[in-house]
Simulated scan of single mutants.
Amino acid sequence: MPSSKILRGLLALPVLALLSGCNAVVMSPSGDIAAQQRDLIIWSVILMLIVIIPVIVMTFLFAWKYRASANAKYDPEWHHSTMLELLIWTIPLLIIIALGALTWVSTHQLDPYRPLDRIGAGRDVPAETQPLVVEVVALDWKWLFLYPEQGIASVNEMAAPVDRPIQFKLTASTVMNSFFIPALAGQIYAMPGMETKLHAVINKPGEFEGFSANYSGAGFSWMRFKFHGVTNEGFDDWVKKVKTNGTALNRDAYLKLEKPSEREPVRHYATVANGLYDAILNRCVEANRMCMKDVMAIDAQGGLGIPGAFNVASLDEATRKRLGLQDQPVRTYVGAMCGPSDPAFAAPATLTNQTL
């Protein structure tokens, strides 16, 4: 018998060793938004335990009281108890009301699109403080961070000052990903052709892990990055380092970076081409593509019909190869739209008279 206990104890050691390396960052975050989300989880669990614990206790109590060997009172004619009915219905109803109120308030307070009105418990955002804008692009399989205010960019690494609100603008190049820094805030999706937003703040200096929480293909497991919470001086030093050691991120460099790759190292870009993020968002980084926002603007005005669709183009060989279309038939698409007032408009007179 003692030997079996020793054996069980030895078998438990590897499990304890594995658990000792766990870092429950979700329950011990370093950002105010994540801390409020942690508190929401705790209060929700407490409210639900008000029902769960009594049910578990009564399960064992009833099993013991009405066991076969017990001399418990049995009343086959019993059918109603007002007090029991009140307990059964009132307590769950109060819990549902409390959970509903908690959910309604937290849904509005923790809306990722809502600008921050505080940087911590009892600490409002200082007057005239502007958030740090970070434009995030989910690529295959790496993260690109653009800092429009600083004019820099980085791959698989970002930094932000402690206690300064951060405004994330997120999009993706091909498939949907989920942007998640557990120590900072909850996850939010990044999707191609769309922009989502997240407001957050980091309250403690340190190095934190960020990753994609939505499976996106072969390199998903290594789609991770480092988030550095630093002082204002540390952030200025980081920006200076990027500008000193980085290269230029123009449209050609972005198209090369956009190609799928795994285990991508940290890269820095000292300059960023004007309007690059907007072009990524609107799917028109290539010179021969019409921006999605322009197409939507034309559609919103009723479209241009056949006379406006003569300016067609096809993808060049480099783009076709990058997209894996070299073995597919060459297709044409509308490269731009023109109207009757444009000098290049040369629609046949018959079409013009019948259509416009």
Results as ranks from 00 to 15, higher is better:
Ile41Pro: 00
His79Met: 06
Thr59His: 07
Gly151Phe: 06
Val133Asp: 12
Gly120Pro: 11
Ser44His: 05
Ser106Val: 02
Tyr113Pro: 00
Pro112Asp: 06
Gln150Pro: 05
Val55Asp: 11
Leu84Ser: 13
Leu132Tyr: 06
Arg114Val: 10
Val105Gln: 12
Gln150Thr: 06
Trp43Ile: 10
Ile52Cys: 13
Ile95Ala: 03
Leu116Thr: 04
His108Val: 13
Tyr74Phe: 14
Val57Leu: 11
Gly120Asp: 15
Tyr74Asp: 12
His80Pro: 03
His79Ala: 13
Glu85Leu: 05
Pro92Lys: 10
Tyr147Ala: 03
His108Asp: 13
Ile50Met: 14
Glu149Cys: 00
Ser81Lys: 01
Leu47Pro: 04
Trp141Tyr: 15
Leu110Ile: 05
Gln150Gly: 05
Tyr147Glu: 02
Ile88Thr: 08
Phe62Asp: 09
Asp111Lys: 01
Pro126Thr: 05
Leu94Pro: 00
Ile95Gly: 03
Ile52Leu: 15
Pro54Leu: 12
Glu135Ala: 02
His79Gln: 12
Ala72Glu: 07
Ala63Val: 07
Met48Gly: 14
His108Cys: 08
Val51Thr: 08
Thr103Met: 10
Tyr74Thr: 06
Lys142Val: 00
Val57Ile: 13
Ile119Cys: 09
Met83Leu: 15
Val136Ala: 10
Val137Pro: 05
Thr59Asp: 05
Leu132Cys: 06
Thr129Met: 15
Asp117Gly: 12
Asp117His: 10
Pro54Thr: 11
Val45Asp: 14
Thr90Lys: 00
Ile42Cys: 11
Leu61Ile: 12
Arg67Phe: 04
Ile91Val: 15
Ala63Lys: 09
Ala98Lys: 01
Leu93Met: 14
Leu144Trp: 01
Ser106Cys: 03
